[in-house]
Nucleic acid binder design. Structure first.
Length: 267
DNA sequence: TTGTGTTTTATTGCCTCC
DNA sequence: GGAGGCAATAAAACACAA
């Protein structure tokens, strides 16, 4: 590992503590660090070659691919850095412990950003899928409604035609199938009417509908139902939205191979 | 070559936990 | 109160199209 890759050569650090761990960083005022350029300096200072050479002998350097590789490996094992591991890694890489800590900090931030993107994609596809389900249910409802009307018409015609013409008599008892058809019709009517403010529940003993705002989906029949579950949040800690789409977990949740997923805890 | 957008390294300030 | 984490941000390094 070439020394020139370091932001500050280790030998140059002697006597000039440039990277301090927490606790002592408050002492790291820019004016106390003769080798470091101040964050804010005047344009005159910036264009002054002498000042530049004097104040900024070393520019910010990127880590070597080897260093990054080792850090990535270590991050994969555990994304948090205990002091001991930090020291070991720093020694191994020829970096300051502070640099290792910063790298881990930034790496966690990058991982989190990616995870948010993944969660967004996942939620969006879940939403699209539910929307599609909802549309097909609406169509099915319309179809069934027409069928019910048609059957009701037929049933009424049957009653008139089949009635004895001579003298009053007891109405013929409805056949079991007819009773069921009438009950079903009533239910469908009720269900359709609930979309304009009625109760979301059709039948207390039947499958319950979940009011998710604009849509009612039969949870029993639709795995993608948007029921907010009493999930304990134990989604492997992989999502920022534990429990939101709990029932939609059958969808493949593609994860980046490179990303360690088993440690992240939503806090 | 240069302008511009993205990524990486590093700092700062605030918050939480012990 | 100190240590460590995170969000926000700065700035250098890098990538890439024109």
């Amino acid at each position: 590992m070439e020394a020139g890759r370091f932001l500050f050569d280790p030998p140059a650090l002697q006597g000039n503590i440039l990277f301090l761990d927490k606790g002592s960083r408050s002492m790291m005022g820019m004016e106390e660090s003769p080798k470091r350029r101040r964050f804010f300096c005047s344009p005159d200072e910036l264009f002054d070659e002498e000042y530049y050479d004097e104040q900024m002998p070393e520019k910010k350097r990127r880590l070597t691919p080897e260093q990054v590789l080792l850090l990535e490996k270590s991050f994969e094992e555990e994304n948090k850095l205990e002091p001991e591991r930090k020291t070991q890694l720093a020694k191994k890489l020829g970096l300051q412990p502070r640099q290792v800590a910063v790298w881990f900090q930034n790496r966690r931030a990058r991982w989190k950003t990616k995870q948010l993107e993944r969660d967004y994609d996942y939620l969006k596809s879940s939403y699209d899928s539910l929307l599609s389900d909802y549309d097909s249910i609406l169509k099915e409802n319309e179809k069934l409604k027409l069928e019910v009307y048609s059957l009701t018409e037929k049933l009424q015609g049957k009653e008139v035609d089949g009635a004895p013409m001579t003298g009053p008599s007891e109405p013929a008892p409805l056949e079991e199938a007819d009773v069921q058809a009438v009950q079903f019709s009533a239910k469908v009517e009720d269900r359709l009417s609930t979309r304009s403010g009625g109760s979301a529940v059709i039948d207390e003993e039947g499958p319950q509908l979940v009011d998710s705002g604009n849509s009612y989906l039969l949870c029993e029949n639709y795995p993608g139902c948007v029921a907010q579950s009493e999930d304990d949040g134990s989604d492997d800690g992989r999502s920022y939205f534990p429990g939101v789409f709990a029932a939609a977990t059958e969808q493949p949740h593609h994860e980046e191979e490179e990303e360690p997923m088993d440690w992240w805890v939503w806090s």
